[in-house]
Design a protein around this nucleic acid. Structure first.
Length: 433
RNA sequence: GGCAAGUUACCCAAGUGGCCAAAGGGAUCUGACUGUAAAUCAGCCGUCUUAGACUUCGUGAGUUCGAAUCUCGCACUUGCCA
């Protein structure tokens, strides 16, 4: 699972003069501080930069992956990454446009910090002159007293400026309003940048463009407190061309943690990418170079049905996140299950390996199909199972199920297994005990 | 602290005593068409073994034959005043 195997093969595209030109081509720059200066800095000797990840969930998601890969691209260009995990900011919560966050307990946040540190570590190299380093903002925030905070930091912040930040003004104009807790978030993030500037000479912060207010909060603070110029880059919000939210599969977030989103599901997510989006995704989420991506773009135009670009995307990203072996297993499982439909022709070992990649359950032969749909998570209630069945969307071993009282008995494949399917492509495995 | 408005299913949002499991829109899901795309059209969209029953409309009491709808308390949100 460690991506270390991948780290050694990653490189930036040498056809670009510098990493700035490359990330602009990849569409990774939505907003930034002075472009000419950024380009000069990034083309020069090693500088230190950082990106923060807040523990608002037990795992990072695809939005975070954009940042991780951007960090890696800078590291490949010779710069020094600081991976910040928000032990303190995670306790506060950054303002979302819609509503106030529910605070997590300190214990939970501490636990999540550990998970995120492990995940961030996988995408950066900790060897060499520009080795990455992990930092936790709780280390310098926790010891700070409220008085020191208000005197030493608070004085640099003007409320008028703070109110103008998008994240804050959106909330002020909504019915939800905003708590003082979340209003203060930008100060904490600004402090982080200042602290890293002082301790590590960190001069650049990256983040999503929705974080722009928080990014500039840091550059402003550094200017006021140190009289120095620091930089920020905001990456675009990744959207689907059909207007739906990126990073959701069947309504659920796609996580980097294989326990939350299986490598199989992860691979499938990328494979199902819309034609209209796939090239943009290749630029952002893979290390494929410009010539290869341009070739794939032509393939999408001339032979879209082959889905070559989607296959390349799924292969690259899944390997990046879950490693070669897990990706192989995901592809093999899909090949077996989406094959020509002759499941009985598969040997038991291949089938079992494939089913292990899917959501699965172990049960007795007399269990009904509608119950199995619930047990495997394909549906959330018996009523929903029945509805799906009525609509002709339930298959057992590629045979449409029409009888709501049907049971597994007599319908298993060699080795006492069965493949349950809902709709065209949502699969689950069943093992008879 | 005072005054006012509000809290409806995943999200937005109607409903203001029985015809309400609750309009409409979005999202998800299923079917047709396809390339495990997109668009389009159709259907489903609280739970339970359908008919039917059961549990829901911030929360706790109450009025009533009957409440999401009326009364009172509480919590939270918003606005204005202090």
């Amino acid at each position: 699972m460690p991506a270390t195997e991948a780290l050694s093969t990653q490189r930036n595209d040498e056809s670009f003069d510098n990493v700035w030109d490359e990330i602009v081509w990849r569409g990774l720059v939505h907003v930034s501080t002075d472009e000419a200066e950024l380009k000069a800095i990034l083309s020069g000797p090693a500088v230190t930069y950082y990106c923060g990840f807040d523990p608002t969930a037990p795992s990072l998601h695809l939005g975070n992956l954009v940042q991780l890969l951007l960090m890696r691209r800078f590291q490949l260009a010779g710069h020094r990454p600081l991976g910040l995990v928000g032990g303190s900011t995670g306790l506060i919560g950054d303002p979302r446009p819609t509503a106030e966050r529910t605070l997590q307990s300190p214990d939970t946040v501490r636990e999540w910090v550990g998970y995120l540190e492990a995940q961030v570590s996988k995408f950066l190299s900790f060897d060499g002159d520009n080795a990455a380093r992990l930092v936790n903002n709780l280390d310098w925030t926790a010891p700070l007293s409220a008085i020191d905070f208000l005197r030493d930091i608070g004085k640099f912040f003007r409320v008028g400026t703070m109110l103008k930040k998008d994240a804050v003004s959106a909330r002020l104009n909504s019915e939800a309003g905003i708590s003082y807790t979340e209003f203060s978030y930008q100060i904490l993030q600004g402090m982080d940048f200042l602290e890293l500037y002082r301790s590590y000479d960190c001069v650049l912060q990256t983040g999503g463009s929705d974080q722009w207010g928080n990014l500039t909060s840091g550059t402003d603070l550094i200017r006021k407190a140190e009289g120095a110029t620091a930089h920020a880059i905001g990456t675009p919000l990744i959207t689907n061309s059909d207007g739906t939210k990126f990073g959701k599969s069947e309504g659920n977030a796609v996580w980097l943690d294989p326990a939350l989103t299986s490598p199989y599901a992860f691979y499938q997510f990328w494979l199902n990418t819309d034609d209209a989006d796939v090239i943009q995704r290749l630029k952002i989420f893979t290390f494929l170079d410009r010539s290869e991506i341009e070739r794939l773009a032509e393939a999408v135009a001339s032979e879209p049905f082959r889905r070559e670009a989607q296959r390349a995307l799924a292969l690259e990203v899944t390997t990046l996140v879950h490693g070669v072996d897990a990706t192989r297993a995901a592809i093999d499982a899909a090949a077996a299950l989406f094959g020509q439909g002759d499941l009985a022709g598969l040997d038991a070992d291949t089938l079992e390996a494939a089913l292990r990649e899917l959501p699965n359950t172990t049960t007795r032969a007399e269990t009904t199909v509608i119950q199995l749909l619930v047990d495997t998570g394909l549906t959330t209630s018996l009523g929903e199972s029945r509805r799906a069945l009525d609509q002709g969307g339930v298959y057992l071993n590629n045979e449409k199920v029409t009888d709501a009282s049907a049971a597994l008995t007599g319908n298993t494949l060699p080795g006492g297994m069965a493949v349950l399917r809902r709709g065209k492509k949502t699969l689950a495995g069943v093992f008879v005990e």
